[in-house]
Simulated scan of single mutants.
Amino acid sequence: MYEIKTLNKIAACGTDIFDKAKYSVSDNAENPTAIMVRSAKMHDMEMPSELLAIARAGAGVNNIPVDKCAEQGIVVFNTPGANANAVKEIALCGLLMASRKIPEAMQWAQSLKGSGAEVGKLVEKGKSNFAGCEIMGKTLGLIGLGAIGGKLANIAISLGMNVIGYDPFLSVGAALSLKPQVKVTANINDIYACADYISLHLPYNAETKDTINKETIALCKDGVKLLNFARGELVNSADIIEAVGSGKVSRYVVDFPCDEILGVENIVAIPHLGASTEESEDNCAVMAANELIDYIERGAIRNSVNFPNAELAKTGDALVCVLHKNTPAIISQVTAAVSDKGANIENLVNKSKKDWAYTMLDVNGEVDVEAINAVEGVVKVRVL
């Protein structure tokens, strides 16, 4: 029986996918085979000895010690694209709130409570304080054209905007999904130079931290409007506050509030509602559950953030799945450890991802697991 531990409430449509004859799902499993998590912090958590995988029901994995998990042979999955439509829709909302002072106007309208018959006159008198601009004909610059950025690009074209995007890792599939009117540039500075609106849709890591800072803001058009529905740390808080204060940035809409930006005029802080829809939570839960089932039962890896995607059909006596460091000579040592016992390798798949690799061997004959484990750089061996 495989135990699946949930660290947050996971939508039932996801947990119900697990076959009850093979799996038990609970929030109190003591030595789980896998963990499903949303926002719970795991950096200080001691990983159970039998843990094979962690599935994050969402895109970001900042709450998971990804590198530590790789060292322990724990595959970390996320669910890219499952919440893309939800974030696209709130980013569209943010685009409109960047143009029109809707939050401030609504708050002001509430302040008229108790004015009786004078409300109508006060509204007509005060509404000019909240005048804005239209998005039609303006240029939207997108930094990141993945599942969310690409969807926003297409809808912006439909709304009459000009769109330019930058993504050094743009996949063929993502490129083909873009409307032909979307211009793609290989130079991020083109975004800063021509965009009236800039929307961030890139992952947060050491390289992307403070992508928007004093220097990059200086390259932008005066009065540029900035949207951040990706990660708060992509924008330097002190620099954006200064830019908004000077008017260089006329509006900053962000889905990741921090103490520094709260209460600052022309900064619209939304309490991380990007993926907070019923549909998004369901989609993420279902994708996360299927990723875990595929890995636990078939050794297949899809959408891992620390190991490469790979799968191989089992046709022989055993499917040997080896997680290891991406260093020279490991594959030859692993295959030698298999063949030295007299087993025959019918098929083999090896994939790598930065410092880590995954080798799958379809084998006929007896497998010496201890010999494979003894190979330097191997962190986990499973035989299915």
Rank of each mutant, 00 (worst) to 15 (best):
E3P: 06
K9A: 10
I10M: 04
T15L: 09
T15I: 07
F18I: 04
D19R: 04
A21W: 06
A21D: 12
V25K: 03
S26M: 06
D27Q: 11
A40E: 08
M45I: 07
I54D: 04
A55Q: 09
A57T: 14
V61P: 10
P65D: 04
V66E: 12
C69Y: 08
V75I: 12
V75P: 05
V76C: 14
F77V: 03
T79E: 09
A82C: 15
L92Y: 12
L95T: 03
L95Q: 02
P103V: 00
Q107F: 07
L112W: 11
K113A: 13
G116T: 10
L142F: 13
L142K: 04
L142I: 15
L145T: 01
G149R: 10
K151L: 15
L152M: 10
A153R: 04
I164N: 07
L176D: 14
L176C: 06
S177P: 06
K179E: 13
Q181K: 10
K183D: 04
T185C: 09
A193H: 14
A195R: 00
D196K: 00
S199K: 04
L202R: 08
N205F: 14
N205C: 02
A206K: 15
E207L: 12
I212Y: 09
L219P: 05
L219N: 03
G223M: 03
N228H: 04
F229S: 00
L234I: 13
L234T: 04
V244W: 07
K248W: 07
S250R: 11
S250N: 10
Y252P: 02
V254C: 14
G263W: 14
V268Y: 01
I270S: 02
A275F: 07
I293L: 06
E297P: 08
A300Q: 08
N306Q: 08
N309H: 09
N309V: 05
T315Y: 10
T315V: 09
L323W: 04
H324T: 09
T327W: 12
P328S: 06
A329P: 00
I330E: 09
S339N: 12
D340P: 00
A343M: 10
N350C: 11
D355C: 13
L361R: 02
N364E: 12
G365V: 06
A371N: 03
N373W: 02
E376P: 00
R382G: 05
L384P: 06
